[in-house]
Design a protein around this nucleic acid. Structure first.
Lengths: 254, 254
DNA sequence: GTTGACCTTAACGTTACGTAAAGGTTTATA
DNA sequence: TATAAACCTTTACGTAACGTTAAGGTCAAC
C-alpha cells in the first residue's frame, strides 16, 4: 500500500507539515519521490511512523526518537529508562514549583488574613472588641446591641474571598482618598467617591447602614489615635479629611 | 543607588542579555538612559526585578508576570491560583507520561522475556525440551546427558540482562547473516563472523563448546522445519547458508 | 594613546511544528 | 476542452526566553 503525504497524515492523524518536517530532519523519509516530485510512503514508513508517534506520545524529543528508532531493542530500553529518569526529575521539580506556588498563595492569603487579623481582627475586631471598652457604651448606646453583635458575627463568618474583596475595597478607599486629598477639598467628587467606597467597605461588616453610624465611625477616626495613625500613615491629615468627606457624604456636617 | 546593566545583573544573578530582553519586552525598563546611551537602573527597578525573578522561579511566563506585577494583590492571587491549576494539570499529564513510559519499559522487558519465552523458552527450551523427543536420543547420545541438562539449567538461571544480551546477539547473528547472504559465499568473512556470533550465542546456553555440537545444531537448522522457518523467514535459504557457514567455521565440512 | 573592561544594537540559533505565500499537478466537472 | 477544486511542492516567518557572536561606541587606567 502506498500513500501520498495527505493520506498518510490522515491515517496517522498528523499534519502534512509534520511529515514534511520529519522528512526534513531525516527521521522519516518517503520510500520514493514520484515523477511530479510528490512524496510517496510505503508500508515500512507507516510502521516507522507508528513507532515515532508512539515515542512522541511518551514525550521523547525527536532527536532521541531518532536514536531510539535506529537502536536495538536493548538500547531502546536503555534510552527509555533514561527518559523515565528525566521525567521523574521533571516531576520532582514540578512538585517543588507547586509547593512554592502554594506557599506563596497561602502566604498571600496569610497576608490578607494577617492584614485582616491585624488591620481587621487585631485592629478592627480590636476596634470593636477593644473599643467596646472605650466607645462600647457609646456605640451600643447609639446603634444598639444588635448592630454591634451582628457586625462581630458577620466578621467571623466571612469567607476568604470576602476578606479579599474587603481588602481590595480598603485599598481602594486609601488610594482614592490619597488622590482626593491632593485637591484639599472633601466636598469634591473624588473625596465623595472615597466616602462611598468607605460606606461599601463598612457594609461588609455591618448588617444595616445608617448615615448616623457612618458619621459616628468617621468621627472615631479622628478621636481615636489608633485609627488616626492608620489613615495618617499614608498622609498626615487624612483621617480628618476622610471624616470631613464622610460628614459631607452623609449630610451630617454640622 | 544606581546600577549599570552589568551591576544589576550581578546583583540579581542574571545575564545582561536577560535584562536587555526584559527591557525589550517592556517588563523592566531602566529608570533612565545616560548620555552615552547606557541603561541605568534605580531602586524601583531592583525591587521590580526581584518580583519578576520570584515569579519566574514559580514557572510563570513573562507574559503573565507582566500582568501580575501591574496587578493588585487580589488579582495577583487569582493569577497565582490559575498558575497553580496549570501546574497541577501539567503534573497530571507528566504522571500519565511516566506511567506510560513505565508500562512500555516493563512491556519491553516483558517482550524480551516473551521473545525469550517464545523464541527462547518456547522455541529454544522447546527446541531442547521438545527436540528431546525428536533429537533427544541423538543429542544426548552425541553430547551426553550432562551437556543437555546443564544447558537447560543454565537457561533457567539466566538473568534479565543476560536474556537481553542474548537477544541482542541473536539479532546480530541475523543481521550479519543477511549481509553475508548477499555475497552468497558462506566462506566469506561476513558469513564467518555470523558463524562466530552464533557460537557466542550458543555459549549463552551451553556450558561447554565443541565444534561437533555446533555443527550438529547447524545441521538441525536445516533438518527441522521449525528452525528452517525461523531463519528462512528473513530470507529463503538462510538456514542452509548458516549451516554451510558454520560447517566451514567449525572445519566440519565434509 | 592605547589597552581592557564596559556599553550599545542587530541578528541568528534553539524545538516542533503552524501558517501563509507562490506556484506546479491531477482530477472532476461544465 | 477549459477551468476550477483539490492536491502537491519549496520557501520562509513566527513561536519563548534568552545564548551567542559580531561590529562598533565609551570610559578609566596605564
Amino acid at each position: 500500500m502506498e500513500y501520498t503525504i495527505q493520506k498518510l497524515g490522515q491515517l496517522a492523524g498528523i499534519s502534512t507539515r509534520t511529515l514534511r518536517y520529519y522528512d526534513e530532519i531525516g527521521i522519516l523519509k518517503p520510500s520514493r519521490i514520484n515523477s511530479s516530485g510528490y512524496r510517496i510512503y510505503g508500508q515500512n514508513e507507516v510502521d516507522r511512523l507508528q513507532q515515532i508517534l508512539f515515542f512522541r506520545e511518551l514525550g521523547v524529543s525527536l532527536e532521541s526518537i531518532k536514536e531510539i528508532i535506529s537502536a536495538s531493542s536493548f538500547d531502546r530500553e536503555k534510552v527509555l529508562k533514561e527518559h523515565r529518569e528525566k521525567l521523574l526529575e521533571k516531576r520532582k521539580q514540578l512538585d517543588l514549583l507547586i509547593e512554592n506556588v502554594e506557599k506563596t498563595i497561602s502566604s498571600t492569603e496569610g497576608k490578607i488574613k494577617m492584614t485582616d487579623k491585624e488591620k481587621f481582627e487585631g485592629f478592627k475586631q480590636k476596634m470593636i472588641d477593644d473599643n467596646e471598652k472605650k466607645y462600647g457604651k457609646e456605640i451600643r448606646g447609639k446603634y444598639g446591641d444588635e448592630v454591634v453583635d451582628q457586625s462581630n458575627q458577620k466578621l467571623k463568618n466571612m469567607t476568604q474571598e470576602q476578606y479579599a474583596e474587603m481588602e481590595r475595597l480598603s485599598a481602594d478607599v486609601i488610594e482614592t482618598l490619597k488622590k482626593a486629598f491632593a485637591t484639599g477639598d472633601p466636598a469634591e467628587e473624588l473625596a465623595q467617591k472615597a466616602a462611598d467606597l468607605h460606606r461599601q467597605w463598612l457594609c461588609y461588616s455591618w448588617n444595616s447602614y445608617s448615615k448616623e453610624a457612618h458619621a459616628g465611625v468617621a468621627q472615631m477616626y479622628v478621636d481615636d489615635e489608633r485609627f488616626t495613625a492608620y489613615y495618617d500613615a499614608e498622609q498626615p491629615g487624612m483621617a480628618k479629611f476622610l471624616r470631613d468627606a464622610i460628614f459631607i457624604y452623609t449630610g451630617m456636617k454640622k
